[in-house]
């Protein structure tokens, strides 16, 4: 009996999380009527993640360009540098790295904020004021996460491929022709790749926001409970991102 308990607990957690997601989804139409609250949350999960996303995107693009150039130049294919950077970023690194950073930056903040609101009776207080905390507190944060992730992934990819990342190193520093950098990318990729990137970004955004608000809302109302909620937000969403990435890539591979 006792060896079944962890498995049963895991199942129960998954069930609770799923029901919680359904509850959130049911309140979304109502929450959309208060765009102001959503705008506020987009600021805290989106704008405040912007710097880390821009900087990481640039560095990852630069590293990819340096590494890729060394290999490609041996085959006289340095002009394919753009393809290498763009393919790696758009198909994999953009959504995955942004997702991991988003979980660390915005997911933990969400979980901690909601957990603390619970620990200090703010959520219970709202409920006693006949205000549904799921609709008023959880849903706007969830929606904001959903909106912010695809935008952040696009910004990350743009920085990594174009503005300051691969382009800066490949074209400005290593002297790859600007035209062939872009035209090679153009030929190797098409609109579907961008669509796939946005799909991945949205799925990751849903997973991270869901995990973060669930962990926060179901945190034990103590300081230890809140710290545990933030930790498991990072751990669970990182694992979820990597696993989902595999599943989605397998689907898109066809």
């Amino acid at each position: 009996m006792s060896f079944l308990t962890p498995a049963a607990e895991g199942l129960r957690g998954l069930g609770r999380a799923s029901l919680f997601l359904l509850t959130i989804l049911a309140t979304i139409p109502g929450a959309l009527l208060r765009p102001r609250l959503i705008v506020q949350q987009i600021y805290s999960v989106g704008n405040l993640s912007l710097i880390i996303i821009i900087i990481s995107g640039s560095f990852i693009g630069m590293v990819l360009a340096l590494q890729g150039y060394r290999t490609l130049v041996n085959f006289g294919a340095a002009s394919s540098l753009g393809v290498l950077v763009a393919l790696s970023i758009v198909r994999e690194l953009g959504p995955v790295v942004t997702g991991l950073l988003f979980a660390g930056r915005a997911g933990t903040a969400l979980a901690a904020e909601i957990g603390l609101m619970k620990a200090t009776d703010q959520l219970a207080g709202m409920e006693m004021m006949a205000v549904d905390p799921i609709k008023r507190v959880i849903a706007p944060r969830f929606i904001a996460g959903l909106i912010a992730m695809p935008l952040l992934v696009s910004i990350f990819s743009m920085m990594a491929i174009g503005v300051a990342g691969g382009h800066a190193i490949g074209v400005e520093l290593l002297g790859v022709d600007d035209g062939s950098y872009w035209s090679q990318i153009n030929q190797a990729m098409h609109g579907g790749d961008i669509c796939d990137m946005l799909i991945k970004a949205s799925v990751f955004g849903l997973a991270i926001s869901w995990i973060a608000v669930y962990q926060g809302y179901h945190a034990a109302p103590t300081s230890e409970g809140v710290s545990r909620a933030t930790t498991s937000t990072v751990v669970v969403s990182s694992l979820a991102i990597l696993a989902l990435d595999f599943v989605l890539t397998a689907f898109m591979f066809r």
């Binding site: 987009i42 600021y43 989106g46 704008n47 912007l50 763009a86 758009v90 909106i147 912010a148 695809p150 935008l151 952040l152 696009s154 910004i155 990819s157 743009m158 491929i161 174009g162 872009w182 990318i185 153009n186 030929q187 990729m189 098409h190 609109g191 579907g192 790749d193 961008i194 990137m197 946005l198």
Partner: peptide
Amino acid sequence: FFVSLGIAAVFVLTFRVAS
């Protein structure tokens, strides 16, 4: 600003990266 930056990024990517 954030949202328009994001949308601009989507456009840049679709127009520059995809042909």
